[in-house]
Computed example of a mutant assay.
Amino acid sequence: MVKKYRTKATQINQNRTSKVGNQTIIYVLSESLSNPNRIPGVKLSQNPLSYLDQIKQGNTSGLMDSYGYGGGTANIEFEALTSLSMNNFAPSMSIPYLYLVPKLKKIPTVMDDFTTKNAIYPFTPTIYSRNRVFKKFGFQHFYNLDSKDKLAYTNKIQNSNYISDDSAFKETLKQVDRTKKGQFIQLTGKFYN
């Protein structure tokens, strides 16, 4: 498996002229998005993620293997940003954002090569102390429901308490358009249509 991905990385990087920090990288961590095309035995009349698949074909993209879904987002987010697996911690380390990160002076992240780093969480920032953790991680702006960095898009669907997918992704595209330089954007949330 390692050999397979090392070979793939060598092929991708062979003609790459730009450094990762000069590109725009967007992490979307969603508690509700799943690809039904990847579920064995499920047959669909059409692909519900055709637009996403089209975007992925034209850009560097991939899949993330996640040990959880539908909750525990902060731990999966921690793993994605730090490249540290929860498997390496004692079982008593239930939430690194609450029990580990506050004790560290600096923690390396995948964002370290970027000058511009923004996080979007269309919900309350104090859940899992994201407001403190993201500051420590080096995010310049953290767009959420309670911060001075106000969300521009906050539409909800019907009687839902959650900001719609459409608003969350518009917020992300707004950040993409803010700079032509490389940037890292993380969108995390409870998206529901």
Rank of each mutant, 00 (worst) to 15 (best):
Y128L: 07
Y128I: 05
S129E: 07
S129W: 05
S129Q: 12
N131T: 03
N131L: 05
R132Q: 10
R132Y: 09
R132E: 12
V133C: 07
V133F: 02
V133D: 04
V133Q: 00
F134M: 06
F134L: 05
F134C: 09
K135T: 03
K135E: 11
K135P: 01
K135N: 08
K135C: 00
K136D: 08
K136Y: 00
F137S: 08
F137H: 00
G138S: 06
G138Q: 07
G138N: 08
F139W: 00
F139Q: 00
F139H: 05
F139R: 01
Q140E: 03
Q140R: 04
Q140L: 03
H141K: 14
H141P: 03
H141C: 08
H141Y: 10
F142R: 04
F142G: 00
F142P: 05
Y143Q: 13
Y143V: 12
N144Q: 14
N144K: 13
L145E: 12
L145T: 10
L145F: 06
D146F: 12
D146I: 08
D146R: 13
D146H: 12
S147Y: 08
S147V: 00
S147M: 09
S147C: 09
K148M: 14
K148H: 15
D149P: 02
D149V: 05
D149T: 08
K150M: 11
K150A: 14
L151I: 00
L151C: 03
L151Y: 02
L151D: 08
A152H: 09
Y153H: 15
Y153G: 11
Y153I: 09
Y153C: 04
T154P: 07
T154H: 05
T154M: 04
N155C: 06
K156G: 05
K156R: 14
I157W: 09
I157F: 05
I157A: 08
Q158V: 12
Q158K: 15
Q158H: 15
S160T: 14
S160I: 11
S160F: 12
S160N: 11
S160W: 11
S160A: 15
N161W: 14
N161Y: 12
N161I: 14
N161T: 15
N161H: 13
Y162W: 12
Y162G: 01
Y162L: 10
I163C: 01
S164I: 00
S164W: 00
S164C: 01
D165N: 07
D165R: 06
D165S: 11
S167L: 04
S167Y: 10
S167N: 05
S167V: 01
S167F: 02
S167M: 04
A168V: 10
A168Q: 11
K170V: 02
K170G: 02
K170F: 09
E171H: 12
